[in-house]
C-alpha cells in the first residue's frame, strides 16, 4: 500500500513524464510554454546577452486573479528596477532617482515575444523539436522556430520539461550567428509573490509618464505601407509625444507574433541619420519624404526594415 502511494506521489510531481508520453509536438510545447509564462509564479536570475553586452538581472513573475506582474532587478550598473503590468512598464533608475512610466497599448514579456495564435505564426515559421539539454541544471526540450523566409529571424527556445517555462532563448541572424541570448541561471517555481509598486523605496523622485496620445485605426493615418512582408499584421496605430519634439509622432506597430516592426512618421529634423542603422538584433532604416522623416525599426533583418520603409507612401 505504501509503495502504491509512493508511486502516485511520484507521478503527481513529475508532469514531464506525462508530457513525454503524450508525445507533444513542437507547437504544443510552445503553447504550453506560453500558458505557463502567464499563469505560474516563478523567480530566478536571468542573463541578457545583447549587442555584445551582458546584463544580469533578478527576475520575478507574479500572478493574482488573472493579473500578471513581471519584475526585473539589475544586479550590475546601471542599477534599475523594471516592472511590467497591465498596460504599463515602469523603470526605476536608482542612481539618478528617476522613474519612467511608459503606458503601452500592448504588454510584451521581457523574456520572449510570443504570438497569440501559434497556428497563424506557423505559416511563416517552422516549429520543430530538437534534442534535450540541461539549462540551470534543469532538463529542457529544445524547440527550433525556423523562419521560412529572409524577412525574420529564427530562434530556439529551451523549455523546462517540468513546468514548461523558457529557460533559454537564442535569436539567430540570417547566416546562423547568435544575435541575442536570454538565459536563466537559476529558477524557482511555486512561491506566490506580492505585487510591488515602482516607487516603493525612493523618496523625492521625479516621475516621468510617457503617454500615447490616441489610439486609432490605421485607415486614419496619412500614409500607407505598400511593402509589408507576409504575416506582419497591424497591432496598433497611435500618436505619441516626444520630449524633445513639439510635434506628435505617428507610430504603427506590426508583428508576425515573434518579430515586430515599428514605423514612425514625424516632421523632418535637421539632424536625422538617414539609411540603415543596427543595434544588436534591432535594425532601423530612415528616409525622408517631403517634409517628413520615416523610420522603420524592429528586431528583424536589415532588409525587412528597408523594404517596409521604402514602401511608405502618403495618401
Amino acid at each position: 500500500m505504501f509503495l502504491l502511494r509512493l508511486f502516485f506521489l511520484f507521478l503527481l510531481f513529475t508532469p514531464s513524464v506525462f508530457a513525454e508520453e503524450a508525445g507533444l509536438n513542437a507547437q504544443q510545447w510552445l503553447e504550453k510554454m506560453s500558458l505557463s509564462m502567464k499563469t505560474l509564479n516563478y523567480q530566478g536570475t536571468v542573463a541578457f546577452f545583447k549587442n555584445g553586452r551582458l546584463d544580469t538581472m533578478k527576475y520575478f513573475h507574479a500572478t493574482d486573479n488573472g493579473q500578471e506582474q513581471e519584475r526585473l532587478l539589475a544586479l550590475n550598473s546601471p542599477m534599475r528596477e523594471v516592472i511590467r503590468e497591465a498596460g504599463t512598464v515602469s523603470c526605476v533608475f536608482k542612481d539618478s532617482q528617476k522613474i519612467v512610466v511608459n503606458h503601452r497599448p500592448v504588454s510584451q514579456s521581457f523574456i520572449v515575444d510570443l504570438p497569440v495564435e501559434f497556428s497563424t505564426a506557423s505559416v511563416h515559421y517552422h516549429f520543430s523539436l530538437s534534442n534535450e539539454e540541461s539549462v540551470a541544471m534543469l532538463p529542457t526540450r529544445v524547440v527550433t522556430i525556423q523562419a521560412n523566409d529572409k524577412y525574420r529571424y529564427s530562434r530556439k527556445v529551451w523549455i523546462d520539461k517540468q513546468y514548461f517555462l523558457p529557460l533559454k532563448m537564442e535569436v539567430y541572424d540570417l547566416s546562423g550567428g547568435i544575435l541575442e541570448q536570454v538565459v536563466f541561471t537559476d529558477l524557482k517555481v511555486g512561491n506566490k509573490f506580492e505585487f510591488v509598486k515602482a516607487n516603493n523605496e525612493l523618496e523625492n523622485t521625479s516621475i516621468k509618464h510617457i503617454h500615447q496620445l490616441e489610439s486609432s485605426s490605421f485607415d486614419e493615418a496619412d500614409f500607407v505601407l505598400e511593402n509589408i512582408p507576409s504575416g506582419f499584421q497591424t497591432v496598433f496605430f497611435i500618436r505619441m509625444e516626444r520630449d524633445d519634439s513639439a510635434q506628435a509622432v505617428d507610430h504603427l506597430l506590426l508583428s508576425d507574433g515573434f518579430s515586430s516592426v515599428s514605423v514612425y512618421r514625424e516632421a523632418k529634423a535637421d539632424d536625422i541619420q538617414l539609411g540603415l542603422q543596427t543595434l544588436g538584433s534591432v535594425n532601423s532604416f530612415s528616409r525622408v519624404i517631403d517634409n517628413f522623416q520615416i523610420t522603420a525599426l524592429g528586431e528583424v533583418p536589415a532588409q525587412t526594415v528597408q523594404f517596409i520603409a521604402q514602401g511608405v507612401k502618403f495618401r
Binding site: F48, K50, R53, M57, P78, R80, V82, S109, D113, V282
Partner: peptide, 8 residues
Amino acid sequence: SNDLYTHG
C-alpha cells in the same frame, strides 16, 4: 518594445 530596459 521592452528592449530598452534590458539593454543596460
